[in-house]
């Protein structure tokens, strides 16, 4: 159970740079991750996400800038408070599940018996108790992924750094892992999640950092970022002639797979004013009325394309 104060800075990254020869993998990156939040790290392949994560974990050292974890420079004790699941992950295939979990738990500073008890508890919770004494190679791929996740949280870390957490998981296991991560966050833990799957970010993340070409492209609370990209329009679902509304400049029909028209507002007209106008019109009925906010996926594509043209 996390003992950190909710909202306290867990990771503080300040103006870090990292170059590989002539290639600048990370440039002047600054952000912070707080206790009790899911922090999404986004970006196209090769944007610098993995390099940044490896610098946080002290696997790589930044050329410039500083990184503080749990209030100080990372050391062995601080590393033991982190659970890390890289994208390229594996297990000791010839080892028994329980033995391998205990070994990795003990390496994280746990007492051997405590590691065994905790491993058995997690195996029970995730429905793998019967597989404890099986060799890892005898497990299905989905089971192995669950074991990998269990290893990440076995030592009850305060910070989980997880790269593509749901890659290759079926919907049921995705839900299980998602619940575990959200439970961890609600207990005050911090989750850094690097992923390409935007709907998971929309669903889970409190704040995000989008990196493009090694630089910060977007940073802040998810809702705030989405609103920043909101267009001056509302999406409505209902019946009536929307073009007859005084505050509407033009009406965009629904795209493929979409429901409801997009009403672009005239300059100076607010969404609240338009809603009042609709309410005053008996010939118009609405079932849904919401601000037209682009999905993170659309924002992601736009940012990457803007970056490519810059």
């Amino acid at each position: 159970m996390s003992t950190m104060q909710h909202g306290a800075a867990v990771i503080e990254v300040s103006h870090i740079d990292k170059s590989y020869g002539e290639f600048r993998a990370v440039q002047d990156l600054t952000f912070e991750v707080r206790a009790g939040e899911v922090f999404a790290m986004l970006g196209p392949n090769g944007a610098g996400k993995s390099t940044t994560i490896r610098m946080i974990l002290d696997i790589l050292r930044p050329d410039h800038g500083t990184i503080a974890v749990f209030g100080g420079a990372i050391d062995a004790a601080r590393k033991d408070r982190i659970g890390y699941l890289p994208e390229d992950r594996g297990l000791y295939r010839s080892a028994k599940v329980i033995d391998m979990m205990v070994y990795l738990g003990v390496l994280k500073g746990m007492d051997k018996e405590a590691a065994r008890q905790r491993a058995l508890q997690l195996l029970e919770e995730l429905g793998l108790a019967a597989n404890a004494k099986q060799k890892v190679s005898e497990l299905s791929k989905g089971m192995q992924q669950k074991v990998q996740f269990m290893v990440t949280i076995l030592h009850d870390p305060d910070l989980i750094i997880i790269d593509e957490p749901f890659s290759g998981l079926d919907p049921v296991n995705t839900m299980v892992i998602k619940d575990l991560l959200m439970g961890f966050r609600n207990r005050g833990g911090a989750v850094v999640m690097s992923t390409h799957q935007m709907y998971h970010v929309e669903e889970m993340a409190d704040r995000l950092l989008m990196i493009n070409r090694g630089q910060q492209a977007l940073y802040g609370p998810v809702d705030e970022v989405r609103n920043r990209y909101a267009i001056h329009a509302v999406q409505v679902e209902g019946e009536g002639d929307w073009t007859s509304l005084a505050g509407v400049q033009r009406v965009e029909p629904p795209g493929e797979g979409e429901v409801g028209e997009l009403l672009h507002l005239k300059p100076g007209v607010t969404s609240a004013a338009l809603l009042s106008e609709i309410a005053a019109r008996p010939d118009l009925t609405i079932r849904r009325f919401e601000l037209a906010v682009p999905s993170l996926n659309e924002i992601f594509i736009q940012v990457v394309e803007d970056g490519a043209h810059a």
Binding site: L57, I59, A76, K79, D80, I82, Y84, L85, P86, D88, R89, G90, L91, Y92, R93, L104, L107, K108, V151
Partner: peptide
């Protein structure tokens, strides 16, 4: 070679040097 090829190395080196 096994620890490298099955990618557990990256987890190990966040636990020890």
């Amino acid at each position: 070679v096994e620890e490298k090829s099955n990618r557990i190395m990256e987890v190990l080196i966040t636990s020890l040097t």
